[in-house]
Amino acid sequence: MLSRVAEAIYWFGRYLERAENTARLIRVNSHLMLDTPKGISLGWEPLISITGLGKNFDDFYTEATERNVVKFLIGDLNNPSSILNSLAMARENCRTVRDIIPRTAWQNLNKLYLFAKESVSSGLTKKGRDEYLDGIIASSQQLNGLLYSVMYQDEAWLFLRIGRNIERAEMTTRILDVRSSDLLTDEEELFESRSLEGVQWISVLKSLSAYSIYRRTVQVRVSRTPVLNFLFHDTHFPRAITHCLNSVEESLGNLPRNNIPLKSLRLLVQKINARKMDHLEQEALHKFIDEIQSSIRRFHLAIEKQYFLLPPD
């Protein structure tokens, strides 16, 4: 498989996953707002921090109002990771590898992109937002399902999976980082706001479609440590970080010349396995997540160096 093609497919996987996760993020925040008691405002600013795009946002907006944040995340062309831009990039990458991607998948991606673009104004209204985001999520999943059922499972498939899972692992760390730092953890406050804390952890789970499976496999009560354990260490839930990284390892294992990236990945997995989630206070958690994100970035660079087309020196 051509190095350039491997790279495009990897990014196709990443951008598609990014669009879907961004839609999840906005949807869950919207719902959370409705569950928040009067007088407490959680705000929309955390969503900007989650995506790590604070600087881009501040260049164009003065205030993190609901309208501004939603617009920035859904359709702002100045935000390189907005849903619309992510889908456009997924499409551009896919366009360069149309000889690899099944034709029906390309058609679906076009449909998805056109839907995202043409319905964006309704997605920006409060009334139309849910339908818009559900549409994005459902169509991405349909596309992923299609790829699962018809794509030839050769190296292209492995790169697609690596891209998708590495992006998913990263988005899960982002969701944990910001949504949880926002939570009130101070002991005194905790008592009063216990139910609010529960609601917020529920929102973390919901944004990852993990709520019901958590209740079935972990416990009915939703609280900090078990949620962190579940989302970091579970090996069966597709959006749990360990599961994502295991999938990456499995895909990578089938690629040629995989020594160096595999080593980088194993370091990352070890770091996560070794970490106990009990008594992981807010600051420590934030620091830990930062380390994980840097390791993910290092892993990406290892993949890039080993397999992709580097610019001529």
Partner: peptide
């Protein structure tokens, strides 16, 4: 060797 090659993930 004056042959044409493509750059692939396997070399």
């Amino acid at each position: 060797d004056e042959c044409v090659y493509m750059r692939t993930v396997a070399g």
